[in-house]
Amino acid sequence: MVALVWQTVVMLGVMPARLFPGVDRVVATFGRLVGNGVLPTHALATLARLAVGFALGAIVGVTLGIVMGRSRWAEDVLLPLVSVGNPIPGLAYAPLFVIWFGLGNLPAVLLVGFAAAFPVAVNTWTGVRAVKPIWIRSAIAMGAGERQIFRKVVLPGALPAVMTGLRLGLARAWRVLVAVEMLTSVPLGLGWLIFGAREFLATDVMLAGIAVIGLVGLGLEKLVFEPLERLTVVRWGMLAR
């Protein structure tokens, strides 16, 4: 369907063909770039960065969220910081991170983690606070101690919200990463591929790169989160599907 619309526009010739390649050319380029390993290499580099950065952000975010949910004191102090930091686009920090950490992988990974941590923290906090008091009471009545309550009641009880946070965090991480690769001159990566292709007006390469970016984003959602949710919160009936 997309292809159809696209091709119609191309045929109408409203834009110069050099800047607006036909579907056939994009598909051909896609095939060529996959065949000679260029796209997979760039995609792998980007995914590796995403994995490390997101893992960092998830660990920090979940920890912060739990601490905020468990301690009034931490909540009072951390919540204002998190809620002011949350709406600032992560990318706005990119130049600053470049100045602080130089070019290359380090600022990119750190920025991805930084951007992902906010939604994870906010949602984890909500989840921990939303754990039903009756679950805690039941656990106490059955002789559970502080640690056991935390491990066996608070953590699973907060899981639906934590999942939502991780999902939002990953989406955000992905958006930031693609853009930040254009700014930090990483050696390899999809963002970098697109940005570099601009120099040569290689719009077919750019579109092929964009297609991969869309596919990866869709894949992360379908292949990582949906199965994970089906196994946990959907199975437990805590989330309607």
Partner: peptide, 8 residues
């Protein structure tokens, strides 16, 4: 409250 059971 029915919700006393742990849903997980």
């Amino acid at each position: 409250d029915f919700a006393q059971l742990f849903p997980w």
